[in-house]
Write a protein that binds this DNA or RNA. Structure first.
Lengths: 159, 159
DNA sequence: TATGAAATGCCATAACC
DNA sequence: GGTTATGGCATTTCATA
């Protein structure tokens, strides 16, 4: 299941379109890539079965519903013991406020991306989840002033 | 258009499902949330028209197609002059390798998320895009060893 | 094994109450 | 918001190369 999947140019062009709009009728996609409707639908089904397309989702703009603050946090752990880091990872996975968490190289151990409605909520989060009991030595908070490029996995080039 | 949109409980439950799977038939969603098929479809169309649902996409797993390296970069600029930072922002927006770019508070000015096929490609990127000509004083590279929580905007709580 | 074409069945759309 | 009739789209099956 971890094996790489071989794709031809048709697959790439179909993927490129599905990554932008997965509600596009196959008829339209077919004409754009130069295949029949049937072929496009077959390939899309195969791409999903093969795990190339992981899921199909609606992107919601949370800012349209309620104000929120985006924050990045650089976390340094007290130790590199597996038991401690594993526990921290599990806590980050469970924490609803955590949008992303990466184990990184360098002076710091983890980078977090956190979304909270208020700074008070962030204070609650940091005090409970970034505490010394969680194995955290210290952390550096970087509040997002402006999103220049919103994190967009669909920008990853596939070729 | 920047105004907040008021949603009721039905909208929230429909959104919750569409954020997980936007290909779910309205019939199924309707039964799950306790509405008729028509009502669900009407609400979804309204949510899209109001800009609550921004777009509908297929999520592709790039690792299934080709190996890639994920990197976070902390960037410090030479100056805060608008002309310089604006040019940098435009360069980051244009750079295909840049998945995300945020203007942040603290000692550093920008946080970048970059995806590249090889370290050589990252070297090319950093030499061309993170140069002093771009206004960059220095930058700190944090290579992602493991993705604990993959950046997922759908984790943002809407209430 | 992959394609294109045609018949079936499901789903969204639009116009009603 | 619910119901119904219409149109469109995906699915399936088949023939072909």
């Amino acid at each position: 299941m971890t094996d790489l999947v071989a794709l031809d140019d048709f697959d790439y062009r179909i993927l490129e379109r599905a990554r932008r709009n997965n509600l596009e009728p196959a008829r339209v996609t077919a004409e754009a890539v130069g295949l029949s409707e049937s072929a496009v639908l077959r390939r899309l089904r195969r791409l999903r079965a093969d795990g190339v397309i992981v899921r199909d989702i609606a992107i919601v703009d949370p800012a349209r519903i309620a104000p929120h603050i985006l924050i990045h946090v650089l976390v340094t752990m007290r130790s590199q013991e597996k038991a401690i880091t594993d526990a921290f990872k599990r806590a980050m996975t469970a924490a609803k406020a955590v949008l992303g968490c990466w184990d990184v190289t360098g002076e710091t151990d983890f980078l977090l991306t956190v979304a909270v409605p208020t700074m008070a909520a962030y204070e609650d989060f940091s005090q409970s989840e970034l505490s010394s009991e969680r194995g955290v030595r210290n952390f550096r908070t970087m509040i997002v002033i402006r999103e220049v490029v919103g994190f967009d996995p669909s920008r990853v080039e596939l070729t």
